[in-house]
Design a binder for these strands. Structure first.
Length: 864
DNA sequence: CTGTTTGATCTGTCTTTGCCTAGA
DNA sequence: ATCTAGGCTTTGACAGATCAAACA
């Protein structure tokens, strides 16, 4: 009966309550909204009803009233099934994914007395909301292990990307590549950059534009064996990835004797684990789509609108990405591609036509529709265009053809150079704050050229041939933000070395800081590379970068001041922090004064400073007093509520300016100063009383005791086991003058102890050898006794005491094989003395060897 | 669209000085 | 009888971090 009831309850928990359970139905109706679940309801449903002994152990998180009606249970279950189907329709995906690892909450049955007899009413009431799609959506948070893993992946990825950058940098130094790219450049473009000592950014303008017009950027990468080979093919085809085209620009600059670096925004895996699961897929899919959109989309903004550089779709890449991420995006994208193909093709036509029209109109105005903010329809159009291109590329799978297409489009657009040049020049030189189009993709690769004629002492000039941008470092951050690829690590490569130049491109450091790895690790990784980079460029911009780091503008949002590296708001100070001195005020944010971060001091308790070997100076008042959580007293002691506030324990905190080096009593006359427990608290070596030494050796106190030397056990900390706080002792503290004596005695004692141990070991070994030999003798004796012809074994007279047993199954061969010829002479049979190897088996666990005679007889021998 | 507030939930930190029993 | 080593047991409160949703 109990079993039956348990099953009913199980059914009830596996599906929403039946319609008869009014409360539950109401909850079902009300729980489907997208509103945040109430604290009581959130995560509490479905409730699990347990019976029998499990009831006692049920956790009391969920509450379920169980009144079970036996004759109604079938109906209830059917109704429940129907309702379950409804719910399943709504939350099919979630259910499918979560069914296996559903986190059932266990409830307890309030009504304990319920006999399960026929006719008794059994109703299940759920006090909680019914599972809905909203409630089932559990917010899974990353565990510490996942965080650690994500950090490791992040670090490894960083190292790989740095290695990649060095490969690219090395290829840029290849003489053949440099010569090849140089040979392509028209002579008249070289004049402007001939004067290297007085080079200015504007001198690079034409070169960058020419580069931008000449090379087509594709998202598709073809591996030709090595990066240098890739570059060679890029030169030949005039088509390459952004990385390759950018690398070629670096090679060209270097061929022209300019100091140039290959710069990349490392597109590294996140530092924090992604707990959104499928959300990532969508994000990435969208990112993938927008990234590979053509640059010359009609809605593309700013200075990229007329770019002849066509980004071809990376179909293979997309597919493989989608496959990796579960294939959902793939199927979705494919069907969408088919749907929109015809529309898109016409779109391309229109697009090209419009480009031509706009080009032929030759209006060098910047007030074109490119500046109009993107609308939803525009975004949709972009996506459709992208999908159509994907589909086309997938069908043809012909790189040459694609190249040809892109080139023809490129040449088509290249037919209007005067207009474009004019526009580009206008836009590049103007500091227009045009909104970066997401369709242009995040800038990931560019070059930096050192312009000696720029500024007073020269400076590095941003030069992006992919997007035809020059000296536009401020746009990088904005465009990266638009493309959801925020700057995190901008690294410049030169001379086989590397340098972090993120500061040059990042105005809002506090935004990217949380996504960057621990600075110490990063510095240590880059330290050797930085020197190589410095040697190659002979130029240190550290001052400039530091200046940028220290002159970050005040953020406008209060949130940004949380753990900001330069500024602080009093409201975001931690419990153990204080402003000291409280000033100067650098500005205001929403009425709150902004202080320099350097004014924020971290306070510690008296004990906290003690651990660092410091003590509070006399007459110092606590800088801050905070309430301290205290262990709950027993119920009787908390009777007077009036005194509660007065009794509330507090913690007095002191600042670094209030402490001084620890002054402990000196050891006098060989006596170690001890605390009231007769021990020395060794929080660190700084906490040792002067004139004493901490010896961390086991069993040392015995030696000290034997020698009559005063000592104190060294308490090094606490261990929490079995809910109790236990002191942990490690070694002893003795006066320094006894150190050598006690160590020598300890060495002697240890030697003596080891000798004793050795002696015991030898004795034990001897004993074991004796046992072994005895067993061998016994074995031999047994063997001899069975060897003698007079000692025959018959099937009835097995000498069990000698560990030899008859195999009962094979001991009656007459039953098994009555016609066996061998058995006819059974009574005359003498079992072979040397059992054939193939008829022996050995059980390694029991050390029992089983030997079988061809007649079927077997003996078991325990081997020692 | 961005920033702020609020609330929920999870994680990490802080707390800080046995008891009993077998065997020597 | 006394001493010693080792096994047993397995906190809990709170601040801060983080996230989502609502709202301005």
């Amino acid at each position: 009966m109990r079993r039956t009831r348990s099953q009913s309850a199980g059914d009830a928990r596996a599906r929403p309550p039946p319609p008869s359970a009014g409360q539950g139905t109401e909850a079902a109706a009300g729980g489907a909204g997208r509103r945040r679940a109430s604290p009581a309801a959130k995560g509490k449903a479905p409730a699990k009803v347990e019976t029998g002994s499990a009831l006692g152990n049920a956790r009391k998180k969920g509450r379920a009233k169980a009144e079970l009606k036996d004759n109604a249970s079938t109906e209830s279950c059917d109704a429940g099934s129907r309702e379950k189907n409804n719910v399943e329709e709504q939350t099919e995906a979630a259910c499918n994914n979560d069914a296996a690892d559903m986190d059932w909450e266990e409830g307890h049955v309030e009504r304990n007395e319920y006999s399960h007899e026929l006719g008794e009413t059994i109703t299940v009431e759920f006090a909680d909301d019914v599972p809905s799609s909203t409630n089932k959506k559990t917010v899974r948070r990353a565990t510490a292990e996942e965080k650690e893993l994500a950090e490791l992946v992040h670090k490894v990825h960083l190292l790989c990307l740095i290695a990649r950058g060095r490969v690219v940098d090395k290829a840029c130094n290849d003489p053949l590549i440099q010569a090849s790219i140089l040979s392509l450049v028209p002579n008249h473009l070289l004049w402007s950059v001939a004067d290297v000592p007085n080079l200015r950014a504007v001198n690079l303008r034409n070169l960058v534009s020419w580069f931008h017009r000449t090379f087509c950027v594709t998202a598709q990468s073809t591996d030709r064996g090595s990066f240098v080979s890739n570059l060679a093919f890029t030169i030949q085809d005039r088509v390459g990835t952004a990385e390759e085209v950018c690398a070629l620009s670096v090679a060209l600059f270097r061929a022209l004797n300019l100091t140039a670096r290959f710069v990349t925004n490392l597109d590294v895996a996140g530092l924090k684990p992604d707990t959104k699961g499928m959300g990532t897929l969508n994000q990435d899919a969208s990112r993938l789509c927008t990234r590979s959109l053509p640059y010359n989309s009609p809605v593309a903004g700013g200075n990229v609108v007329s770019s002849p550089v066509l980004v071809k779709d990376n179909t293979q890449d997309s597919v493989s990405m989608n496959q990796r991420r579960g294939g959902l995006g793939k199927s979705k994208q494919t069907s969408a591609c088919k749907r929109s193909l015809s529309k898109t093709l016409s779109g391309i036509k229109v697009d090209n036509e419009s480009s031509c029209v706009s080009a032929s109109s030759q209006v060098p105005s910047t007030s074109s529709n490119a500046e109009v903010p993107k609308r939803k329809g525009d975004v949709e159009f972009e996506l459709q265009l992208e999908m159509a291109l994907s589909a086309t590329a997938a069908e043809t799978q012909n790189n040459n053809q694609a190249t040809h297409t892109s080139q023809s489009i490129g040449s088509l657009q290249d037919s209007t150079p005067p207009m474009k040049k004019l526009r580009q020049d206008t836009e590049a030189t103007s500091s227009s704050s045009a909104v970066w189009s997401r369709s242009a993709g995040a800038p990931l690769y560019w070059a930096e050229v050192y312009c000696s004629g720029q500024a007073s002492t020269g400076r590095w000039v941003h030069s992006d041939v992919v997007n035809d941008l020059l000296d536009a470092e401020r746009k990088v951050e904005a465009s990266s933000a638009v493309c959801k690829k925020p700057l995190r690590y901008v690294v410049a490569f030169a001379g086989n070395g590397a340098k972090d130049v993120t500061r040059r491109y990042c105005l809002q450091w506090h935004r990217i800081a949380p996504g960057r790895v621990n600075p110490e690790w990063w510095e240590s990784v880059l330290a050797p590379l930085k020197q190589m980079e410095l040697a190659a460029t002979n130029n240190s911009e550290d001052m400039e970068l530091q200046t940028r780091a220290l002159t970050e503008p005040l953020p406008t949002s209060q949130q940004a001041y949380k753990d900001h590296h330069l500024y602080a708001l009093e409201k975001w100070l931690h419990k153990n922090q204080i402003l000291h001195p409280k000033g100067p005020v650098l500005g205001f944010c929403k009425g709150h004064p902004v202080y320099p971060r350097s004014c924020v001091q971290t306070l510690q308790s008296r004990h906290g400073w003690l651990r660092e070997g410091l003590q509070i100076r006399e007459n110092e008042l606590p800088a801050k007093v905070v309430t301290r959580p205290k262990r709950t007293f027993n119920a009787q002691s908390v009777q007077s509520n009036a005194d509660e506030d007065a009794l509330k324990p507090t913690l007095e905190l002191y600042g670094e300016w209030q402490v001084e080096p620890l002054q402990l009593p000196h050891a006098v006359d060989g006596i170690v100063p001890k605390n009231e427990r007769g021990q020395v608290d060794v929080w660190s070596e700084k906490c040792l009383p002067p004139g004493t030494v901490h010896l961390r050796l086991p069993r040392l106190f015995q030696v000290a005791k034997r020698l009559g030397i005063d000592y104190a056990p060294a308490m090094v900390g606490f261990d929490y086991r079995s809910g109790r706080c236990l002191p942990v002792f490690d070694g002893i503290v003795v006066c320094t003058e006894f150190k050598h004596a006690i160590l020598e005695a300890y060495a002697e004692e240890e030697e003596r102890r080891r000798a004793e141990e050795r002696k015991q070991d030898e004795a034990q070994a001897l004993s074991r050898w004796y046992q072994l030999l005895c067993s061998i003798v016994t074995r031999q004796r047994l063997k001899e006794s069975y060897k003698t012809p007079s000692h025959r074994l018959d099937h009835e007279g097995t000498p069990r005491n000698d560990n030899i047993q008859k195999n009962t199954q094979s001991s009656r061969p007459s039953e098994r094989e009555p016609n066996s010829s061998k058995l006819q002479t059974d009574h005359d049979h003498e079992h072979v003395h040397e059992y054939p190897e193939e008829d022996q088996s050995f059980d390694e666990e029991t050390f029992v060897r089983t030997k079988r005679c061809p007649c079927g007889f077997s003996i078991q021998v325990e081997e020692l």
